[in-house]
Nucleic acid binder design. Structure first.
Lengths: 112, 112
DNA sequence: AGCTTATAGATAGTGTCACTACATATAGCA
DNA sequence: TGCTATATGTAGTGACACTATCTATAAGCT
């Protein structure tokens, strides 16, 4: 999966991955890997900065915990995050419909 | 339409806009505006550099002409461009299926 | 004891690319 | 004379997902 393609859509997917309940970064990676049948395999260098960005934006809140001797930062959707998620989903529907329309284009040529 | 969202998908749309026959940059903008019901309204600062990039990549070829006293650069798909277009269309189908899957996610929580 | 893998997090730096803002020029209309 | 549409172009910016690298613990294998 070429990197550029993802631009602008990552946040929506991260929020969606947290919709089912709190998750830490590593678990988000796995959740997305599972829900996309292995197609989306995000590097840690992508996910951790992105989660910070979402936290700073107030869309998720993080809290530290220690499980099996390993520290985790669990993230949870805020109300604003839930709202943002539904907005992003709508955006995606619009966007994908638009691109699909552009790719289907005009069956017959209408030359300038 | 936020700019970042488009990243990586613009080339496919430009190639698609040229599929019905040669077009110059300005006409490509209008073609995409029409085929997307006005949703995609590309600025000239986006389209002209992008067409250059595609030309340099060998996916389209351009030629100057003068119509009604105005000079135009008409672009046409090369065989490589047609091949690239069908590849990009397939990429888009995969990509959009992946994002949709990620956004639908898991209905019930499966906490880590 | 030593090695590898999985788990878990982080950051510095890079590269791509669509964008804004601006500049140029012709044609047609009011 | 000015405005709009047509037509192309460049310089510079900013966003952001990426690569590469680092730290650290636990579990499993040999």
């Amino acid at each position: 999966m070429r990197g550029e393609e993802l631009k602008g859509h990552l946040d929506a997917m991260l929020l969606a991955a947290l919709e089912g309940g709190p998750r830490h970064g590593y678990a988000v990676i796995e959740a997305l890997r599972q829900s996309t049948g292995g197609k989306l395999d995000l590097p840690t260098g992508t996910i951790y900065p992105a989660l910070r960005r979402l936290e700073q934006a107030g869309l998720i809140t993080g809290s530290w915990s220690v499980v099996a001797g390993r520290r985790r930062r669990d993230y949870e959707l805020t109300p604003a995050g839930r709202q943002a998620l539904s907005g992003r989903r709508a955006d995606w529907r619009d966007f994908s419909a638009m691109v699909t329309a552009a790719l289907e284009g005009n069956p017959w040529p209408s030359p300038a």
